[in-house]
């Protein structure tokens, strides 16, 4: 479980991007953060991860207060975190397989054989074929990069998984595959998963818990069953910008 309390974040002191955000992200669930482009989703995610320093507020990973943790504790915590970046962020100078092997070499004392095993099982879990193991990230498609990125994020059996728009820029079919994959992994390993998205398909498919933010303020929280009938004007504007969902509601 991850909990944030009264989070404020600004850049250069004036540009207030997050305003008083409080939320609970539960274990074993796919927790979604939704909102328009520029609403502060990525900033919120990166603040929770400590890539950005927040101005005010608390961040709890279970019973650990992240902001009060020293470097050593943070480092330890980070090895329990997997992250899928908006752009994949694979290491482009090494092969697909080595991308997965990297965290294993950095943080475990596995033998070469164990590592190969783990690499293989992670990549198979996300349906990457063997021939692609030896390719470099720029030699595989965008959808495959996203999947490899997921494989790398789960290599160390994380307790927390963060995904920043894992299916943006993908065709609807692949996007659904990725959504379902993240959902399945979350259930399988009882992970606390937080996903940033502005894709309504994902919301309807895997939105077990949804936080809607608008201009850095939390506007609504609920589940995929409630999201179409929230009665919240801003949320409705966001959802029903797409005609399909207006029809679905009727």
């Amino acid at each position: 479980m991850i909990e944030v309390k009264n989070l404020y974040k600004s850049f250069d002191g004036n540009n207030m991007v997050l305003k008083n955000v409080s939320a609970v992200f539960e274990k074993g669930k796919t927790n979604l953060i939704i909102g328009k482009s520029g609403s502060g989703k990525t900033v919120l995610l990166k603040s929770i991860l400590g890539i950005y320093d927040v101005d005010e507020g608390e961040i709890w990973y279970n019973d650990r207060n992240f902001l009060l943790a020293d470097d050593k504790e943070r480092k330890k915590l980070r090895q329990e975190i997997g992250m899928v970046f908006q752009g994949g962020a694979l290491f482009d100078s090494i092969t697909v397989a080595d991308n997965i092997r990297f965290p294993l070499e950095m943080f475990t004392n596995m033998t070469a054989k164990e590592k190969s095993h783990r690499v293989q099982s992670c990549l198979e879990r996300v349906n990457i074929e063997r021939q692609a193991f030896k390719l470099f990230p720029n030699e595989i498609s965008g959808g495959m990069q996203k999947r490899v990125s997921i494989a790398r994020a789960i290599a160390l059996n994380p307790k927390y998984l963060f995904c920043d728009e894992p299916n943006s820029g993908l065709d609807p079919e692949t996007a659904t595959v990725i959504d379902n994959l993240i959902h399945a992994i979350t259930k399988e390993f009882e992970i606390t998963t937080i996903i940033n998205t502005h894709d309504m398909n994902s919301v309807i498919e895997i939105g077990e818990s949804i936080l809607f933010i608008s201009k850095g303020e939390q506007e609504w929280t609920g589940t995929k069953h409630e999201v179409l009938n929230s009665g919240n004007q801003k949320l409705d504007d966001f959802i029903f910008a797409n005609k399909l969902y207006s029809k679905m509601k009727k």
Binding site: I51, K75, F85, D92
Partner: peptide, 17 residues
């Protein structure tokens, strides 16, 4: 620089490197 703008550096940091 490319590692920075493609978030590879953030990626390392989050791993705890």
């Amino acid at each position: 620089g490319t590692m920075r703008v493609t978030e590879q550096i953030d990626s390392l940091e989050i791993m705890g490197v």
